[in-house]
């Protein structure tokens, strides 16, 4: 492994970790999505260094689309759309920090005491061809199962997110949550039986 590769690895690794951490520190939801994208791109580039061109670039490609969609949903559903007001939306904060650190320390400890095999991938291995042969050869059942699972996911997503359901419209009688616990619903209240009869659609 050359020095350049090593340096590139540490730069990408730092980028992945720092931007992953900043995801949960930024006020803006759009920034959060794209910081996560930066983390994924850095990991994709590390995969390229590890000799997995297809997986690395496919990660960048897939995550580009996913995080774009993520940003759209963020803006759609957040109370603070553009994320220009400072806000902290966390609960059980101390516990979460503890759990995160515990997970890291635990995994790192397991990793440091385990003796892993040292068997690097051959530099002339045709990894992309291998992957293709594996996907549509011996592991075809697994690959096809993943495909069918994705199809089922699409159907389930449409059912879950559709407005009309078996028991009437999903948003019937829904009110915004209160700004303080037990308070009045936030935002504009629906007009109670107004006599105007104007309905703007």
């Amino acid at each position: 492994m050359s020095v350049v590769d090593d340096m590139a690895f540490w730069i990408f690794a730092l980028t992945a970790i720092v931007s992953g951490w900043r995801v949960f520190c930024t006020d803006s939801m759009v920034r959060a999505s794209f910081l996560l994208l930066a983390s994924f791109i850095a990991v994709g580039l590390i995969m390229l260094l590890l000799g997995a061109p297809y997986l690395g670039i496919a990660t960048i490609f897939m995550m580009g689309v996913e995080m774009m969609v993520m940003a759209l949903f963020m803006v759609m559903y957040m109370m603070n759309p553009a994320g220009l007001n400072p806000m902290v939306m966390v609960h059980q904060h101390r516990f979460s920090i503890g759990a995160g650190i515990a997970a890291f320390v635990g995994l790192a400890a397991v990793m440091l005491v385990t003796d892993f095999a040292d068997n690097p991938v051959a530099s002339d291995a045709r990894v992309v061809t291998d992957l293709g042969k594996e996907l549509l050869g011996d592991s075809m059942l697994i690959f096809e199962t993943a495909g069918v699972t994705l199809l089922a996911t699409m159907v389930a997503s449409v059912i879950l997110s559709s407005r009309s359901g078996r028991f009437g419209p999903a948003d019937e009688g829904s009110v915004p949550p209160p700004l303080e616990p037990g308070g009045q619903p936030a935002g504009r209240l629906p007009e109670e039986g107004g006599g105007h009869g104007h309905h703007h659609h």
Binding site: P53, I57, I60, G64, M67, M68, A82
Partner: peptide, 28 residues
């Protein structure tokens, strides 16, 4: 000369959408 040039082109397309969105969003 990438072994997976077509996938890289796909990444270019995906990131283009991201960049154009960023451009419009970041002007506030």
């Amino acid at each position: 000369d990438l072994e997976v040039g077509i996938v890289w082109w796909g990444a270019v397309e995906a990131l283009t959408v991201v960049v154009v969105f960023l451009h419009g969003w970041s002007a506030n």
